[in-house]
Design a protein around this nucleic acid. Structure first.
Lengths: 125, 125
DNA sequence: TCAATATCTGCATACCTATTCATATATAAA
DNA sequence: TTTATATATGAATAGGTATGCAGATATTGA
């Protein structure tokens, strides 16, 4: 970790920029989160970066739905929806409940809906 | 718009799923946002979907920084940072202020920081 | 006006991802 | 146990994207 920071400082001299405010760069480093958390957070936002999948998540804010409901709503194949749901599950954005042959999906917690409302609030300005 | 919904309903019969809860699908449609807004929102999350660019935005939560500061902090070329900042500007996530030859970037509003904190809160569970 | 610095942008490439198809798994009913 | 339905998953492909490089633009100062 410390070696990586050193490496970055050296590269700073090589990349042609010489106007660096060392204090601000240092503070940004102190406040920065670890690479693993950063990676996971980026993938979480990445899940919301597709219109189809975003519509899927927004639909679930109204309550649980099964895979075929979502496929009908989105106008895509159940297979595509299942792939997308697997990504959402992998990042713990949704959870599922089995009832017979069907699986009902819902949002994992309130944070997910919060992200949508905050994002929408930013649009309206 | 109405024709598009009809099309989706027809496709629902073709894609092999027959367990549809029409009421839930209908409600999801009523509550859904327009495709343009959906597209823009998806691109907004997409901007936050890259670890490097996410680190960039998080750095700006601590105050404004110029391009070379960010390049040094991230360990990438000023060119790459500039490309990324262009995307962030395009979606109004950041704004810039010129002072002489340098451009200082900062977050556009509090929503951006809110997205980060909500996302991080979701990680810690 | 000319040179230097900081930033921007078009192009090319390597990587990532969304979808479809085919197939596998799981549950229910006959 | 066989069949049908609902969902999951691996592989392949097409489209999107992050990056670096080269050149362009903007501001400053001589």
């Amino acid at each position: 970790m410390a070696t990586e920071q050193r490496k970055r400082e050296e590269e700073a001299d090589l990349c042609g920029a010489r106007c660096i405010h060392l204090d601000r760069v240092a503070r940004a480093r102190e406040e920065s989160v670890g690479p693993d958390l950063l990676e996971r957070l980026a993938r979480t936002f990445g899940v919301l970066a597709d219109p189809t999948r975003l519509a899927l998540v927004m639909a679930l804010t109204g309550g649980e739905m099964c895979v075929c409901d979502l496929a009908a709503f989105l106008g895509v194949s159940p297979s595509a929806v299942s792939h997308q749901l697997a990504r959402l599950r992998d990042l713990a954005l949704v959870r599922r409940r089995r009832d017979g042959q069907m699986l009902y999906y819902s949002l994992d917690d309130d944070h997910v809906a919060d992200l949508l409302t905050t994002g929408l609030a930013h649009m309206k300005e």
